[in-house]
Design a protein around this nucleic acid. Structure first.
Lengths: 244, 244
DNA sequence: CGACTGATTGATACGTCTCAAGGATAGTGG
DNA sequence: CCACTATCCTTGAGACGTATCAATCAGTCG
């Protein structure tokens, strides 16, 4: 699973992690940057930039939680590993997202780079100090935390009560929304099929089959294996089974 | 699903929600009460006591989040309902637990009484006001939030990557630990088989079958349908598949 | 006692996993 | 620039685990 790549190496600084056609990601970056207000800027003073290669481990479940991070570019996965190799991905983080905050001692999950990734890295101590001196920072971190919680609740429903097809439909819509992708426009899937499977609680084969089926039904198109176009958003929405 | 019981009615105040033999719950109450320090006591000044009958809805997903709650006695389930009746329970709350905090506008899940329940009810406004004036309250709520997050991560692994038997084993251990139950001592399952199924992402029949199988293997005993004795804790632990 | 609700067990169906093979793609070195 | 190779993705056939449907049992309340 955890095929460690070469140690931290030289990756072009401004490289866009989402490959070829990535105007959508620029927009995503902008929308996320609304988080970066005066409080977070104070935080960024004390951070340093770090890079990780594809599949590299950023920190392990159980490690002492010395730092927290913000994604500058690329994608990060947060996961739990079981002793027999089974893996559950709890979240994917994209540009602007923070992780590793409020860990109180030890990290409770493993963080790995999905592809080449650039992160801002903050000493936990500084964050704690700043969050007492800056009135809004703590509140802001709190909002971040509770948004994670909301996301996880939807994830629970997905894993507990949705069929494979419904999970794939929900997942695609989720990624499409985060990329601000319109119907008919392509967006990137930065993660592998295996990653998707481990996020959705499925196998890689089932993920492939469901994607192929959606393609056959002309609901989506797959120009390349990590690009997707939603041709019928409404239909995909209906397939999630969520219908309020 | 949501069979609304009689409107709020008279339930003996000091009734123990876990029925017959409940010394374990007294202990549970004590251990939880460590949360109730000077900050939370200030909060309790502004709360009122409310009661709900079995299966009554405390608030609905989407309702305006006017109050937050603390369980005094009984058990509460937090759940998401899908339009077709499918249900996923995100958490069970026991004496001492808080819920509905930090909802920012609207509740994002439904809260229902598992059995007759007594709650402390706090106006959200007061909590917000107190959490600015009391230096530690906000931090405390933050710790509560991130503990919820940790619990949810384990729940994700359970739903995404564990088999039915593993889920049942994990669930039993979880409830046993929360009840401070020793090997060989009975503890209460305050929730129905259907509730367990909806928490574990299984059907009621599968839950029954797995419990019966564990009973046949003499790993647990089931004196009554909502009491369980773990006879071989080590074996049950091994069955969770977690083995670190 | 009789009716109701929740729990249990059985027989069968179905969805997803497993195992296996083949195809596409990207990176590597000649 | 082109094999060569490794990795990822895709598809198929069959096995397995859990869901579904149906019947019975057990406890509770009127």
């Amino acid at each position: 699973m955890l095929v460690a790549a070469n140690p931290v190496n030289e990756i072009a600084l401004n490289q866009n992690p989402f490959g070829r056609s990535a105007p959508c990601m620029a927009a995503g970056g902008v929308s996320k940057s609304s988080y970066v207000d005066e409080d977070l800027r104070a935080l960024q003073q004390v951070g340093i930039k770090v890079r990780f290669a594809r599949n590299e481990t950023i920190f392990n479940d159980g490690d002492e939680a010395t730092h927290c991070y913000q994604v500058i570019s690329g994608a990060v996965r947060l996961c739990k590993h079981m002793s027999d190799g089974r893996r559950q991905i709890a979240d994917f983080l994209l540009a602007g997202d923070m992780f590793g905050v409020m860990q109180f001692g030890n990290y409770k999950f493993t963080a790995e780079a999905v592809g080449p990734v650039v992160l801002m890295c903050y000493p936990q101590r500084q964050v704690a100090r700043l969050s007492t001196s800056l009135p809004n920072l703590r509140g802001r971190l709190l909002v971040l935390l509770s948004q994670r919680l909301l996301g996880m609740q939807d994830h629970l429903v997905m894993l507990g009560r949705q069929t494979a097809k419904e999970r794939i439909a929900s997942f695609l819509l989720q990624v499409a929304n985060r990329s601000d992708a319109e119907e008919g426009l392509a967006f990137e899937l930065p993660m592998s099929r295996q990653d998707i499977a481990d996020y959705l609680g499925l196998t890689i084969e089932t993920v492939c089959r469901m994607l192929s089926e959606l393609k056959r039904q002309r609901i989506i198109a797959i120009p390349s294996s990590n690009q997707v176009v939603v041709d019928d958003m409404e239909c995909l929405q209906a397939l999630t089974g969520a219908g309020e």
